[in-house]
Every structure is written in structure tokens, then in C-alpha cells.
Design a protein around this nucleic acid. Structure first.
Length: 153
DNA sequence: GCCAACGTTGGC
DNA sequence: GCCAACGTTGGC
């Protein structure tokens, strides 16, 4: 059963344009247990992903991607040269997990965070909640469809 | 670049 | 196991 997600990335670090040119990527660097658990326990191949640009102005959903691997250990955690290096984990017992994500499309237009906040059908969407910092979060199918429609119009 | 909101760490 | 200190996220 297909699930729906929103995944945040800072465009300065990894933008949807980069994903488009690479085709797919491993979603490295998630160092939050709740986000890790979503990837590890609930994601499966074919799940649909709203690609969100954070820490930019304006922030918002820029396109669509798709989960294209099972979860597997995030090897950047024990790569000393990686910005995501975590000295407290090791390959014997991986702490952090990731999935591969494939490019699907870039929206005709950016669906901004402000727009999500103002849309009457998206009041319950997690991403608009104050203090919501999860970089990987589940999205209801209804919300997903609404955002998709906004992005295509 | 500020800072509020969170999550994590570590002393006790 | 409490909680203060610290670090990070991410909108603004």
C-alpha cells in the first residue's frame, strides 16, 4: 500500500534540480529518531514523496519524488569525512537508516509554505504546524493530492 | 543573522 | 530519572 511523505532538503545542500540531474539519490544525513523510524519502519518502494525546500525563501514544496529502495544503513554515519559523521555509531550496529529516492517531477510552480498554511483543506497538515522540525514526515493522501494539484496548476 | 521551539546530553 | 545546558532546525 502506497504511503505519502514529505521530505525536507535545504536547496543549498541538495535541491530538486540536483535530484533531477542525478535521477536518484540516497537520502543521507537524517539524524533524528522519529524521522529515522519513519524511513526504517514505514517506507516502502513506490511511496510518493513531496520534495520540500527548507531554509530558503520562500520555503515550500517544489516537486515530486518516489521511494526506490528498501531502508538500509546510512553509511555516512561512520564516514569521518562526512558532515553527517556520528562517532557514536558503527557499522556493527547501524543507528541511522536511509532510503533511495528517485526524481519524478518538478512542479510548474513552487507551492509555498504560506500557501499551505492558508489552504482550507490543509489545516491538519503536519508541515504547517508551529515548531514542526521533522525532516521526514507522513502526509495524508488527501493532503498529498491537494498539494499535487496546486503544484500542477 | 536572530531566535523560538525542540531534541539530546550529561551531571547529579 | 530529573532537568539545565547545549546544539540544531528552520521560519522570519
Amino acid at each position: 500500500m502506497t504511503k505519502y511523505w514529505l521530505m525536507k532538503s535545504e536547496p543549498d545542500v541538495y535541491s530538486i534540480d540536483t535530484l533531477e540531474s542525478e535521477g536518484k539519490t540516497h537520502w543521507e544525513g537524517v539524524r533524528n529518531y522519529q524521522a529515522r523510524n519513519f524511513m526504517r519502519d514505514e517506507m516502502s518502494i513506490g511511496d510518493q514523496v513531496l520534495f520540500y525546500h527548507s531554509n530558503t525563501k520562500p520555503p515550500g514544496v517544489v516537486g515530486l519524488a518516489e521511494v526506490c529502495s528498501e531502508p538500509y544503513p546510512d553509511f555516512t554515519a561512520w564516514d569521518k569525512k562526512s558532515p553527517y559523521f556520528d562517532p557514536k555509531t558503527d557499522p556493527e550496529s547501524p543507528r541511522w537508516m536511509m532510503v533511495d529516492v528517485a526524481y519524478k517531477e518538478t512542479f510548474k510552480r513552487l507551492v509555498t509554505l504560506d500557501e499551505l498554511k492558508e489552504h482550507p483543506d490543509l489545516e491538519e497538515m503536519l508541515v504547517i504546524r508551529r515548531g514542526m522540525r521533522l525532516s521526514v514526515q507522513p502526509v495524508d493522501k488527501d493532503h498529498f493530492d491537494t498539494v499535487l494539484r496546486l503544484g500542477k496548476q
